[in-house]
């Protein structure tokens, strides 16, 4: 799908409409609209508690023009499992004929942390659905607390940069590989900066029989401390610095979807963001070095897995 086609598809058939109360510059609605435009089939969605849910369904309003359910923070995968089971039962009993696609959305808090059991269970059971983690690297709905997706060195309200500790000292959990370890047919990492790539992956995910997982970088201007206008360029820097590589794992086969011509230093991605501000004061250079080293080694490992070395 080329960008023009994609844009037309989104505006012709908005399954997620404007009027919601997400922050200016939030990447999540862009991600949702792009993914939902990637299929022409009817879609039923489940949503974990989080920014997307809270800001899109303030009663009596709803931005969702598709069947949509929210139940709790940690259970969107289990909830959609139940919806799918109902669909299968009704199909078997002849009460439904349509080919329906199922999708669940969750932020990184619900996907990496509190709901990882629910996600793992649903992936193992093999339900035919797409799971989307819009990853803004923290509990942004409640003010930016630390999640296991918060990157090395970032300051979070529950792990703030302090005199004795310059932000988070642990590496980000690798949800893509965790999902892939369930031996599911399709897992991909994508970014709001590369929408045709995201649309292509969403299409594959919808068309895959069985579970598919998309982990999508979702810029959060409010908590990252950046300008709304920079949402896309910033995400692009994450991709170009190889700290957020775009790749997919299809039936166990790794494929690199994008390789920057010139690998950007990861500091160029971090510098404009308030959450990394403390790393750019004298004395914390070691953290920047550690982060760059980490990005480099992960990137080389990934290239190997993708047969690019």
């Amino acid at each position: 799908m080329n960008p023009k086609e994609l844009a037309q598809k989104i505006s012709n058939n908005p399954k997620f409409t404007s009027g919601h109360r997400m922050c200016g510059g939030c990447a999540a609605p862009i991600i949702v609209k792009t993914i939902l435009a990637a299929t022409d089939k009817p879609v039923v969605a489940a949503n974990a508690t989080g920014c997307l849910e809270v800001a899109s369904t303030i009663y009596p309003y709803s931005s969702w023009d598709i069947p949509w359910i929210h139940s709790a923070f940690e259970n969107a995968p289990a909830t959609i499992s139940g919806v799918i089971a109902a669909y299968e039962a009704m199909k078997r009993k002849g009460k439904m004929k349509e080919d329906v696609k199922f999708i669940a959305f969750g932020g990184d808090g619900s996907s990496y942390d509190i709901g990882i059991q629910s996600l793992s269970g649903a992936l193992e059971r093999g339900h035919d659905f797409v799971y989307v983690c819009y990853d803004n690297e923290g509990y942004m709905n409640t003010g930016g607390q630390r999640s296991s997706s918060t990157p090395l060195g970032a300051s979070a309200t529950t792990d703030p940069a302090g005199k004795n500790k310059p932000g988070k000292q642990e590496n980000k959990k690798d949800l893509v590989k965790i999902a892939a370890a369930h031996n599911i047919p399709y897992v991909a990492k994508a970014s709001v900066s590369n929408l045709t790539d995201l649309a292509m992956k969403a299409k594959k995910a919808f068309e895959t029989k069985g579970p598919a997982v998309l982990v999508v970088l979702s810029t959060c201007p409010t908590i990252w401390g950046t300008q709304p206008k920079d949402t896309i360029t910033l995400a692009k820097r994450a991709v170009d610095s190889c700290s957020w590589p775009l790749y997919e794992i299809e039936n166990g086969e790794y494929k690199l979807n994008y390789k920057p011509a010139n690998k950007m230093p990861v500091a160029d991605f971090m510098k404009p963001q308030r959450r990394f501000k403390h790393l750019f004061v004298p004395g914390n250079e070691f953290m920047l070095e550690r982060i760059q080293k980490n990005v480099d080694s992960e990137w080389e490992k990934l290239r190997k897995l993708c047969g690019d070395s």
Binding site: V44, A46, I69, S71, A72, E74, N75, P77, A78, T79, I80, S81, G82, V83, I84, A85, A86, Y87, A89, M90, Q117, S118, S120, G121, A122, E124
Partner: peptide, 18 residues
């Protein structure tokens, strides 16, 4: 994989009309 998911799936199924 747990009772938490059991009730969650039940909520999804019941709301789906099952």
């Amino acid at each position: 994989e747990s009772e938490h998911s059991a009730m969650s799936a039940c909520v999804g199924a019941a709301m789906a009309g099952a």
